[in-house]
Simulated scan of single mutants.
Amino acid sequence: MKAFLPAFALLCASAPAVAQQSTTAETAAVKQTIQTFFEGMRKGDSTLVRSTIAPGAVFHTISSRSGATQVQPENPADFLKAVGTPHQQVWDERITFDKVLVDANLASVWTPYEFYLGNTFSHCGYNSFQLVKLAAGWKIAHIIDTRRKERCK
């Protein structure tokens, strides 16, 4: 029993370091999924975007009409079709990672963004992503965002 206690104490002391390494790797993998999503948008590559989306994913946007807040669903299939349909200007959503939280197979990501059509500013807001870790890696299960033209940054 006396030999067991030092080994157990060493194991307990090293557990946070192992957990931190795992969390850092998972955070990087989550960020990469979101970066790939936006890379696909910029390229007009719906196959690349589709590779980041979980089966059954849900998209929403929050808007304000006549002062009333509304939650509007967006069909992911329609979004993918729009991304893959040739368009004159690059869809360039520029994000920064504000918060990335990971627990087991669930991640929540908060990203402020600015959206440009080519080099022309269109709108800004915040994205909230929910990701799930599947056999194929981290996939986006839910996106909800805000959109506005003022009070950016």
Rank of each mutant, 00 (worst) to 15 (best):
G125N: 07
T23W: 01
A54S: 15
I95H: 01
K133D: 02
Q89Y: 03
L134Y: 09
L134R: 11
A19G: 00
G125T: 10
T120Q: 15
G118C: 05
F38K: 05
V18P: 00
W91H: 08
A17D: 00
T85N: 00
K133N: 14
A136N: 12
K31N: 06
F37E: 06
A28C: 03
Q20T: 04
F37A: 01
A13I: 11
P6C: 08
K149T: 15
L131D: 13
A77I: 00
I53N: 01
V83W: 03
D45G: 04
L131P: 11
G67C: 09
K139Y: 08
D98W: 06
T27P: 08
A82N: 08
S46L: 00
G56Q: 05
K43T: 07
A13K: 04
P73L: 05
L10N: 07
T96I: 10
C152F: 03
D103L: 13
G67E: 11
R151K: 13
V49Q: 07
A9H: 02
Y116T: 10
R42C: 06
R50K: 14
V102K: 03
K99L: 09
C124K: 05
P76I: 06
L11A: 13
R151T: 15
G125K: 07
V18D: 00
T52K: 10
V49P: 08
L11R: 04
L5V: 15
S128H: 07
E93M: 03
P6K: 08
T27D: 01
D145A: 07
G44K: 00
N75D: 15
A28W: 03
V58C: 02
G40V: 11
Q35G: 01
T120K: 14
I144T: 15
G84K: 02
G67Y: 10
H123D: 03
A15P: 01
T69A: 08
S51R: 03
V90K: 02
F4G: 05
L5H: 06
K153L: 08
Q130L: 15
V100K: 01
T146I: 12
R50V: 00
R50Y: 07
F37V: 07
A7C: 09
A136Y: 04
D92R: 14
V100R: 02
L80D: 10
E93C: 04
V30T: 10
K153T: 05
A57G: 09
Q35S: 10
K153C: 09
T47E: 14
P73I: 08
K99I: 12
T96D: 08
F38C: 05
T85W: 05
S108G: 05
Y113L: 12
G125Y: 02
V102N: 10
V18S: 01
F59W: 14
L106S: 13
V49N: 06
T111A: 09
S64V: 10
S66E: 13
V30A: 07
Y113E: 06
F129Q: 06
A141C: 04
A9T: 06
G56S: 10
L134D: 06
T36K: 06
S46D: 09
D98T: 06
Q32M: 12
P86R: 00
A136Q: 15
Q20I: 04
A19P: 02
N105Q: 14
L11K: 02
A3M: 11
L131N: 12
G118A: 07
N127K: 00
